[in-house]
């Protein structure tokens, strides 16, 4: 069954869209990532104009993240206090990121920089997670118990300490604020929620327990993507309500299933799966940069 999208101005299969939404929703619930870094390229592939894809997918992530957060709240796996600190940092970062984006646009190389940022960050984050979780799995096989992470590093020497009971942490607010700000900047430049950077940063930099990380990341993503949606709707008129509804119906159902799968899997397995996915997307983007494309030309809306 075909459906005509009023803003994207193309006709696509409603089942294909629903399936895409569900797939990304499952990943979102499992890993606490918004899934934007997977959804955006997939929407391009089925012929949705890039501007519409980016804006609409932000709206869809609001829905799947909200659905996921509710499930995590019931399980008490959201650190609201930590989430608020990250969010304050995130909003500051997003405001800076929008300015950086504007500047890059004015010098005319925004697309290259976005792709390069993706390749670098996906590669770094994916590689680090993959190696770390592989070591953890090896260790747990040898000794029979999951290796305990180091809980003390330079981060614990910083001032402005605060107690985060849910995460079982007593650390300075500076690192989470900076993590939030960095993710906010990148989210504004890359047009995603930023969960794929947030989740590893929370695990490795802040030392938060993996189970709490997912819910807390989703909590912050809701606000960042809601902000992005409003910006796109008011400034670019590129949010497609029909596309969003179909994607989010698939997405919210997927997120519920994903959350249940995530609870059943071991933390190391969860991390290695996410690492593989992040690396695959990185390889795909790097391929596009390094090898000659079959069509050198691309079309965009005209007018200055």
């Amino acid at each position: 069954m075909q459906i005509y999208l009023p803003i994207a101005e193309v006709s696509v299969s409603i089942f294909l869209l629903f399936g895409l939404g569900a797939l990304v929703g499952i990943l979102s619930g499992m890993f606490g990532v918004g899934g934007g870094f997977l959804m955006t390229p997939m929407l391009f592939m089925i012929g949705i104009p890039p501007a519409v894809a980016v804006a609409t997918e932000a709206n869809q992530i609001v829905a799947s993240s909200f659905s996921g957060v509710l499930a995590h709240l019931r399980r008490k796996t959201v650190d609201l206090k930590m989430g608020m600190v990250l969010l304050v940092g995130g909003l500051v970062g997003a405001a800076i990121g929008v300015q950086v984006f504007k500047y890059l646009k004015s010098i005319g190389q925004v697309e290259l920089l976005v792709t390069l940022t993706y390749v670098i960050f996906l590669g770094l984050v994916g590689g680090m997670m993959f190696i770390e979780s592989l070591n953890a799995i090896r260790k747990s096989k040898k000794t029979g118990v999951v290796g305990k992470k180091k809980r003390h590093n330079w981060i614990h020497g910083l001032p402005f300490k605060m107690r985060f009971r849910v995460s079982n942490l007593y650390i300075s607010v500076i690192p989470p604020f900076l993590v939030g700000a960095l993710v906010g900047i990148l989210a504004a430049i890359m047009g995603v929620g930023g969960g794929f950077i947030m989740v590893p940063a929370m695990i490795y930099l802040l030392g938060m327990p993996t189970k709490v990380v997912v819910g807390t990341s989703l909590f912050q993503i809701i606000f960042v993507t809601a902000f992005t949606t409003l910006m796109h709707a008011t400034q670019n008129h590129t949010v497609d309500a029909v596309l969003a509804v179909v994607l989010l119906l698939g997405g919210v159902i997927g997120a519920q299933i994903g959350t249940r799968i995530g609870v059943k899997l071991k933390a190391e397995q969860l991390r290695i799966l996410l690492a593989i996915m992040v690396l695959a997307m990185c390889a795909k983007l790097a391929y596009g940069l390094l090898f000659e494309p079959s069509e050198l030309y691309s079309l965009g809306a005209g007018g200055h």
Partner: peptide, 11 residues
């Protein structure tokens, strides 16, 4: 409106 639809669907 788009945000409201998203939140309602999520809930």
């Amino acid at each position: 409106m788009s945000l409201l639809v998203a939140l309602v669907a999520g809930y």
